[in-house]
Amino acid sequence: MEAEGERVMVLEQLATQTGLPEWLLRGVLAPLVYPGLGAFAAVALFIIWAERKIAAKVQMRVGPLYVARRLGGALQLLADGIRITFQEIIVPVTVEKKAYVAAPIFAFAIVAASLAVIPGGPGVYGFSSSVSLLVPFALLGLIPIVIAVMGWASNNKFTYIGAGREILVTVAGEVTLLASLLATAMMYGSLDINKIVTMQIRTGIPGIVVNPIAAFLFFVAALLMTDRIPFDVVLGEQEIVQGPYTEYTGLLFVLNMALDYGKLYALMLLFSDLFLGGWMPFDGVLLGSLTVFIKTIVLMLIAIFLRSVYGRMRIDQIASMFWSRLFPLALASLVISAAVHVVYTP
């Protein structure tokens, strides 16, 4: 709780200096700077480069190299990003124009909004509420609808199939994600993310130790929700080009790409808050935020490393795995939570 007070002090000072209300500063800084879009942009540039580099390493290739050769091609993504940003946005004549243009913007805005409630450090959050855990899930749950609209508006067979798959995958994955969430909430007896982290710090036990099954399910379901490789049926590069994103070019395509990485970032940020104790060893604003950030990046690295380990699963395999294997596990994690929630009861 002291950390909380300290952060409030920092923001209050800033508020008195600039003459702006504190809630406004919070609401703007958190979604736009850290843990929001600014941090996400840096993470995305690093993670996509790392993804290509790690896959190359596993396949005994070199990977991106020539942009900033001394750093191992680390600026490759920046170069790609600049190129694709200034590329012409081609709107095909057959698309439903308004929905086609609005959908990626809307979807990305939803991801950005969900970053407003996830704390990225002690007291570093946009809004806090006693049910803040539900907000990111409610928001991320909207995205499949937007993607379905995207696929429909693009008026193309690949995008139809991709959109249909997105719905199927959501039906399979969301239940597991929500069940693991329910187990988590039951374990801590709270829906406030900040409170959950302070509970872990108070007892000194991160959630992953107490309920590893819930953590595992959350991670796997997060991989499914963000189209990571064992479950990347929605994008399905081999047969449906880019799934719902097939018809997009230029900046709109960048938004779509960022959408999946944004979802991954948000969910992994949440994972480090819920299961890894958030800013656990530290209390200060700076060190605490850095801890959460590093934990998130490590989790994302694990998620992208799995890309080069597994092949892709079929849709029916995914559905049967999630409904008949992981969903019973989720029920088991509920039982575990009911048994162990005494750990966190004050």
Partner: peptide, 18 residues
């Protein structure tokens, strides 16, 4: 095993002809 195999291969030098 699968994860171990991938990790082991990461330690090997690339076979790219530069």
């Amino acid at each position: 095993d699968a994860i171990g195999a991938a990790l082991r291969r990461m330690t090997k030098p690339p076979m790219t002809l530069m």
